[in-house]
Design a protein around this nucleic acid. Structure first.
Lengths: 150, 150
DNA sequence: GATGCAAATGCAATTCATTCGCATCTGAGA
DNA sequence: TCTCAGATGCGAATGAATTGCATTTGCATC
C-alpha cells in the first residue's frame, strides 16, 4: 500500500472538535488536495492512503457535514451538473474555470469582485457571498483539436 | 407575486422538434415561469394545470434533456446545494440572487460581465460562458428578523 | 382523410448519491 | 484509568435520475 509522506507538523487541526482517526485522515486529504472533491473521491483517496483501517462512506458524509458546520470546509456544487464539492476553507476566496471537455477545474488567481466590500447592502437584498464559475476549454483540450462543441 | 395570464397564441413552438401534448405542456409551464424549476416542480406544475391526462416523471426528464439538446432550455445547478434547475432560453443571460433563508431566487437586472466579450481568449483557457450567483438575504427575510445566520 | 413508422411516452425496475437507525466503539475530560 | 457524549460501521431506506421495453402518437407521405 503506497503511503504518501505527510508532515503532520504542517497541519494544524483546529480546536473545538473531536479529532478521531477518520476525521484526521479526511482533513489531511483535503489539506493536500488543491481541487474541490466529491465525497466519493474523497472516500477513495482516504481509503487509498491509509493502512490503518476501513472507512464507511456514510462516515465521510457525516464528517463533511460536521466540518461544514464548524466552518472548516466549504461545500458547493458545480453549476455545470450539480455535483457536490468540498474544499478546505483556507481564508482565501477562490473561483474556478471549468473545462467543458475534460472537467478539470483551474483556480483563478483572483476574484473579479475582490474590490467590493464583503457585505453589500442594497435596497432589496443584502449580499453576503457570491459564487462564480467560468466555463470554456483549457489549453490542452483546445490544442488537442477534439472538442465536443467546437 | 402577480400571476400572468397566458395567451397561448403568444407562445411560438420552435420548429425542428416533435411537439407532443406533453412537450407542449412542459414548454408552456417553462414559458410562464420566470424562475428556474427543478424537474419535480415542473412535473407538479404540469400535472396541476392540465386536465388532459397523466404524465410520467421520466417523461419530464426526457423532455428536458431533449429541450436542452435543442438549446431550448438552459440547465444549471444551484451552487448552494446542487439541485438541478431548468429555464427557458430567452436569449438574455440572467444571474440570480439567492436568499439563504427562504431560497427565493431573484433575477438580477444585468450581468456584471456584460461589458466583456462573450468569448474571452486567454493564454491557458478559452472562456465561453460563466455563471454567477449572489447569496444573502432578501428584504422580507432581513426585515422579519429571524435569520438563521444573522 | 388515411397510413406507416421513427420517435415519444408510460410504467416498472434499476442505478447512484445521500441519509438514517441502531448497536458498538472511542477521544478526551474528569 | 474511567466514563460517556458523540463518532463510527453497517445495512437499510430514501430520493433523484436513468433505462428497457411494450405501447402510443406526431407528422410526413400518400
Amino acid at each position: 500500500m503506497e503511503r504518501k509522506d505527510v508532515r503532520h507538523s504542517e497541519i494544524h487541526f483546529p480546536e473545538g472538535i473531536k479529532w478521531t482517526r477518520q476525521r484526521k485522515a479526511v482533513y489531511e486529504v483535503l489539506w493536500e488536495e488543491k481541487e474541490p472533491l466529491t465525497p466519493v473521491k474523497l472516500y477513495n483517496l482516504v481509503e487509498q492512503r491509509t493502512a490503518d483501517g476501513e472507512y464507511a462512506l456514510s462516515t465521510i458524509y457525516r464528517i463533511l457535514s460536521a466540518f461544514e458546520e464548524k466552518g472548516l470546509v466549504e461545500k458547493d456544487a458545480s453549476m455545470e451538473d450539480g455535483t457536490l464539492l468540498y474544499s478546505l476553507r483556507r481564508g482565501n476566496h477562490t473561483h474556478y474555470a471549468v473545462c467543458l471537455e475534460c472537467h478539470k477545474r483551474i483556480a483563478l488567481a483572483n476574484c473579479p469582485f475582490a474590490h467590493l466590500s464583503l457585505e453589500q447592502e442594497t435596497e432589496d437584498f443584502t449580499i453576503t457571498n457570491h459564487k462564480l464559475e467560468l466555463y470554456g476549454y483549457c489549453k490542452e483540450c483546445r490544442d488537442s483539436g477534439r472538442l465536443r462543441r467546437p
